[in-house]
């Protein structure tokens, strides 16, 4: 079953050439997921001294919202893009392409992009929150959860940077550090806000 699914997805990518879009969405939204939840954790702890359950609720809520917004937004955008491309081919071919492998693959590519987009944002957010899940059932203290979440966030950002560096075939360490800087900027802004308020 797994190999059939793989074959079918590779067929969709082959006929729609949408692989790079899905990859782009995956990285972009995992980034969103990590930074958003990191922002919630830092904001809650530094600015509001929130309890574990409040952070967990806010984090899960944000992850679900990102997942839904990612899926619907990407599906609509990708569908419009794919329809435009189909229309261009139809105009060049002077035939309707309804029912062809091209239309089927492009329709499915929009769905795959939406799923990838939604899952990457949601999973990345939830992974950052894992220490707080442990803290909620009293396996960790809230302080350790905070530190662990920060470490996981930065590790994920670094990992995403490395992945981007690999795609671009550039210096992967430099690329990893670049995305770490994004996390640090978020952190510094929240700390600055804490000092002002």
């Amino acid at each position: 079953m797994f190999s059939r699914l793989r074959k079918s997805i590779s067929g969709i990518f082959r006929y729609s050439r949408a692989e790079e879009y899905s990859r782009r969405y995956a990285v972009m939204n995992a980034f969103d997921g990590v930074i958003t939840v990191l922002g919630i954790i830092f904001g809650s702890v530094l600015l509001g001294q929130a309890a574990v359950k409040q952070i967990l609720a806010a984090g899960i809520g944000a992850s679900i919202a990102m997942g839904i917004s990612g899926a619907s937004g990407t599906y609509m955008t990708e569908k419009a893009e794919q329809e435009r491309k189909i229309k261009e081919i139809e105009e060049a071919m002077l035939v309707k392409l309804d029912g062809t492998v091209i239309v089927k693959a492009r329709e499915r590519a929009a769905i795959i992009s939406a799923i990838v987009d939604s899952l990457s944002a949601m999973l990345a957010g939830l992974v950052v929150l894992t220490p707080y899940f442990a803290a909620a059932i009293e396996l960790l203290t809230s302080e350790i959860a905070f530190h662990l979440s920060t470490i996981i966030s930065f590790a994920l950002l670094f990992g995403l940077g490395i992945f981007l560096g690999k795609i671009a075939k550039k210096d992967i360490i430099r690329s990893g550090i670049k995305s770490l800087v994004v996390g640090l900027v978020t952190l510094l802004l929240i700390i600055a806000l804490n000092l002002i308020l």
Binding site: M93, L94, V95, L97, T100, V101, I102, V103
Partner: peptide, 14 residues
């Protein structure tokens, strides 16, 4: 030949 015509059409060609 009909099958060839059909497959060509399915692949968006003419």
């Amino acid at each position: 030949f009909e099958e060839i015509e059909e497959r060509v059409k399915t692949m968006g060609a003419a």
